[in-house]
Structure formats: structure tokens, C-alpha cells
Amino acid sequence: LQALPLTTLKIDRAFVGGIGSSAKSEALVRGIVSLSRGLGMPVVAEGIETDAQRAFVQGLGCERGQGFGLGRPMRADQLTEILFGGGPLGVS
């Protein structure tokens, strides 16, 4: 990994989806977060769909995520309203 031009590690949704039901998935997620810290790279958890998954990855220090559990796809004008108009996500 150190020889590749990488800037971010991404945790595949297959591992995130196993959080809460697979100790192996949870161990892999922990390992990827630890590896990213050791390499000085940010990490993104993909496929967050539940509060439990979000809490687990946040508890590990993963500050970036993607998935329907964080927000549904939307048009640019809808995102602008949320970010600048005090929308339902409570972005501050």
C-alpha cells in the first residue's frame, strides 16, 4: 500500500454490512481503521445503513462514511437547502 499513490482507504460495504452479525467483519473493519491511522490516511466506511453500523465505525474513529443510513441520494438544490437552510440533517 505504501508504494501505491493512495490518499484514502475505503472500507467495503460487505464488511460494514456484517457489523453486528459477524465478528470477522467487525475485526476487518477495526483492522482497516487501524491500518489507515498507521499510514496517515483518512478512511471512509461505505454502505452504512443502520444506526448500529454508524455508531460502530464512529466509535473506531472513522469520521467519513457513505450510505443510506446517513442520507438518501438527492438533487444539488436539496443538499444546498440542508447545508445552508437548516435542513433535516442538522448540519452545523
Score class of each variant (00 low, 15 high):
G86A: 06
R75G: 13
R30P: 01
I32L: 01
G87Q: 14
M41G: 05
V57E: 11
G90D: 13
E26V: 03
G85M: 09
A3H: 05
V91W: 06
Q2T: 13
F56E: 03
F68T: 07
S34P: 02
S21G: 12
R64H: 12
A14Q: 05
L1G: 09
R13G: 12
Q58F: 10
C62S: 02
L89E: 01
R13C: 11
F56D: 01
G65H: 00
G47Y: 04
L70G: 01
G61I: 01
C62T: 01
S22R: 03
E49D: 14
T8W: 06
C62Y: 01
M74H: 11
G85R: 10
L60K: 00
P42K: 15
Q58K: 02
R75S: 07
G65M: 01
P5W: 12
Q66N: 02
G87A: 02
G67K: 02
L35W: 02
Q58Y: 15
T50P: 11
Q53E: 15
E46P: 14
I19W: 05
K10R: 02
S22F: 11
A55K: 11
G38A: 14
L70W: 02
F68W: 04
S34T: 12
E81P: 03
D77C: 14
Q66Y: 04
E63H: 15
G87R: 14
V43W: 00
A52R: 12
L79N: 09
F56Y: 08
V33W: 00
R75N: 06
S22V: 08
M41W: 06
G65F: 00
S92T: 03
G71V: 00
G20N: 03
L39H: 11
G40Q: 07
E81V: 09
L35V: 12
G86F: 15
G17I: 10
R13M: 15
L4E: 13
S34Q: 14
R30F: 01
A23C: 07
I82Q: 05
L6S: 06
I32P: 00
G47K: 13
G61T: 03
F15M: 01
F68V: 12
P5I: 12
L28R: 10
P88K: 07
G31E: 05
L1V: 13
S25M: 08
G90Q: 07
M41C: 04
I82A: 10
A23L: 13
A14G: 04
A52L: 07
S22M: 08
G38L: 14
L9H: 06
E46Q: 06
P88E: 10
D51E: 08
Q78C: 10
F68Y: 08
S25P: 06
R37K: 11
V57S: 15
T50S: 09
A27V: 09
R37S: 10
L9Q: 02
F84D: 05
G47F: 07
G71I: 01
G65V: 00
M74C: 06
S21M: 05
A52F: 09
G40W: 11
T50Q: 05
E46S: 05
G69I: 07
S21L: 08
V43N: 01
P73Q: 11
G38T: 05
T50L: 02
A3Y: 13
A45K: 00
A55L: 13
V44P: 08
